[in-house]
């Protein structure tokens, strides 16, 4: 019983989603199923938030290595939660000028908006920008001409890297009859034909893999949601 009901729910919802795609009369059922998932995922945040607080508090109280970071997590969490829930500094909405809490919690003039703009924005941009450094070190370490395939990969990388910069303009002098040799054209053709062909093949394999995985879940062969896999 403990495992039958969840399996049944998974199977029924899965079948409904497939059927709703083809049968107009059942279209609203799939919308309802999506709404249910969103509600569950929203409520599940309480579990996640609780877990986060519990684990970080334990780290701090037992003074484990790196407990200072746990403290940063908790303080940041508390600040964002308070500022967002209490709508600190939120100006009233245009339609309700006499109601101080009527504005959006993340309005630019609010404390939440200020933190978003001046703390969150630079932090996430910095994390993303780190990729430039990691790409360089990974390229230096991993791109080795060990065999024919690796050499082909290297050659393609050079062409695409250079073709995506202003250097590609150096080949503009190549006559129109041989325009396919211009660097930007070589890049465009590499991306449009060679890369796209390879990606299509991988994508088709993935699509069928997704269908098979979904079917395994629907049939109860894989049941990751039950702890039995």
């Amino acid at each position: 019983m403990k495992s039958t009901v969840p399996t049944l729910i998974a199977t029924i919802v899965g079948v409904v989603l497939i059927v709703a795609f083809f049968v107009p009369a059942t279209q609203s059922w799939s919308e309802t199923a999506v709404d249910w998932f969103n509600i569950l995922a929203g409520v599940a945040f309480i579990l996640g938030g609780g877990n986060l607080i519990k684990v970080q508090l334990e780290t701090i109280s037992s003074r484990r290595p790196g407990w200072g970071y746990a403290l940063v997590i908790l303080v940041s969490f508390a600040i964002m939660l308070t500022v967002g829930l209490l709508k600190i500094g939120v100006p009233p909405a245009e339609q309700y000028p006499n109601h101080p809490w009527s504005g959006e919690y993340d309005a630019p003039a609010s404390a939440f908006g200020w933190i978003f703009e001046n703390v969150y924005n630079p932090l996430t941009s910095t994390m993303f920008a780190l990729l430039a450094f990691y790409v360089a070190s990974a390229a230096f370490r991993a791109f080795r001409a060990k065999n024919i395939e690796a050499m082909l990969l290297l050659g393609t990388a050079f062409i695409v890297l250079l073709g995506n910069t202003a250097i590609a303009r150096l080949t503009d002098g190549i006559p129109d009859s041989l325009s396919f040799l211009r660097l930007d054209q070589v890049v465009a053709n590499t991306m449009s034909y060679i890369t796209t062909g390879a990606f299509r093949a991988i994508t088709i394999g993935i699509a069928i893999g997704v269908a098979a995985t979904a079917l395994r879940v629907l049939l109860g062969i894989d049941r990751p949601y039950l702890g039995r896999t």
């Binding site: 994508t203 394999g205 069928i208 893999g209 997704v210 098979a212 995985t213 894989d222």
Partner: peptide, 8 residues
Amino acid sequence: GEEFFAAS
């Protein structure tokens, strides 16, 4: 890609 879905 598909190797990943075949893993289980």
